[in-house]
Design a protein around this nucleic acid. Structure first.
Lengths: 207, 207
DNA sequence: TGTACATCAGTGAACGCGCGTTCACTGATGTAC
DNA sequence: TGTACATCAGTGAACGCGCGTTCACTGATGTAC
């Protein structure tokens, strides 16, 4: 993907990435409100004006960081190995989601919170199905679950609906753990998380 | 609760409330980043310095607005009437939650997003069980569901665990609808929401 | 190989802005005698 | 009832700050002949 570039293009790419990495790191340390062009520039030994060579505005940088986050989340979930035990694999996907949220809380909040002002694509579904989103990974798992007869399907209730149900549940867990339940001891949280995931699976299962 | 106050105390209370109302309205219109002491002061015809008679800092105001939000959400859910049909009542609670989120998106995001830096109470559970939280309403419903034999219980899986499962699901729906799925047509969203709630209930039910 | 020129990445200073907070103040309201 | 004083709610101007963005610039790198 990054092959076939002339040297100066590679240098550009590298600088662009350095900007995004610095931005991500600053967000991790000080939250989204702590992010400033001046801070990014300081981190990569540039003048603030220099950033405008690579991005048109601060907002563009923030969007790029969020996009990158979605990609990283997708990769984290895609990296969950597939075993014979579908139910366990499904739980593994959920835990990958939660681990990402726990390890990158401010990045996660940025991705799933701050930017509702995106222009809507005319087909709202297409963005979610794209390569930048983790949803297709979940959808694939739902399809496998159906194929293996673990999940029940009915009229108007196929893999897509199953994937959404799972996403809703795991996303709620992730958000509430970050923002409301962070005072609870983590063993309690883990127990509640597991129960919730199990209940959710139970609601989707055949028979 | 507001009785037994001397006139000047009532006046103070009213001003305090006016500040919070203005803050809430500004947040609704311009988001949390659009909130400034100057803006609040302008809205209630005060000088910015005057606000310090009522709150010690901007942060205090923001926390107060968030707290008020939790109270309003609780009231919205407590106002859902109880009928003979438990399952329908449970769905009603979910819809009250979602309606609140949809009608007060920025307020909702403030409540459930921005302020993870609260000092943790030594017992993390107590705040959630308090009068400022909507969770007890959900817990009551879960207890009723158990009492009526709709929800299954097992070892280590009682009303509390049921309430959490429901909260996770409905909160995930609310957050994703606000931040990721706002491009989908609302009939699609409503269908997915209902399916998810039904699946969740199914996972909790007896037999 | 050497020279003239164009392109490019990055700088430094400045722009105007809105912010939270402080502080000395004022004028009205309440209290004591 | 009148007067002196204390309290209180609210003001206005100023503080220092950090911000995103612009723009004329510079020095290095690349290109053409």
């Amino acid at each position: 993907m990054t092959a076939d570039l002339k040297p100066h293009e590679r240098r550009q790419q590298r600088t662009r990435q350095a900007i995004l990495d610095a931005a991500r790191q600053i967000i991790s340390q000080k939250g989204i409100d702590g992010l400033s062009l001046r801070g990014i520039a300081r981190a990569i030994d540039y003048s603030p004006a220099g950033l405008y060579e690579y991005f048109g505005s601060k907002e563009e940088i923030v969007h790029a960081v969020a996009d990158e986050g979605h990609l990283r989340l997708r990769h984290a979930m895609a990296a969950v190995p597939e075993t014979d035990d579908f139910v366990a694999d499904m739980a593994g996907l959920g835990h990958a989601y939660l681990r990402f949220a726990a390890e990158n809380p401010d990045h996660f909040l940025l991705m799933f919170t701050i930017l509702p002002q995106y222009a809507c694509a005319e087909d709202g579904m297409s963005e979610m199905m794209g390569e930048k989103s983790a949803f297709p990974i979940l959808l694939q798992a739902a399809e496998r679950g159906v194929r293996e007869g673990v999940f029940a399907t009915r009229e108007e209730h196929g893999p897509l609906e199953i994937a959404f149900t799972a996403w809703f549940d795991i996303h709620g867990v992730a958000m509430l753990r970050l923002t409301q339940l962070n005072c609870l001891p983590s063993d309690v949280l883990d127990r509640l998380t597991d129960l919730s995931m199990r209940n959710m699976m139970r609601g989707l299962m055949a028979e």
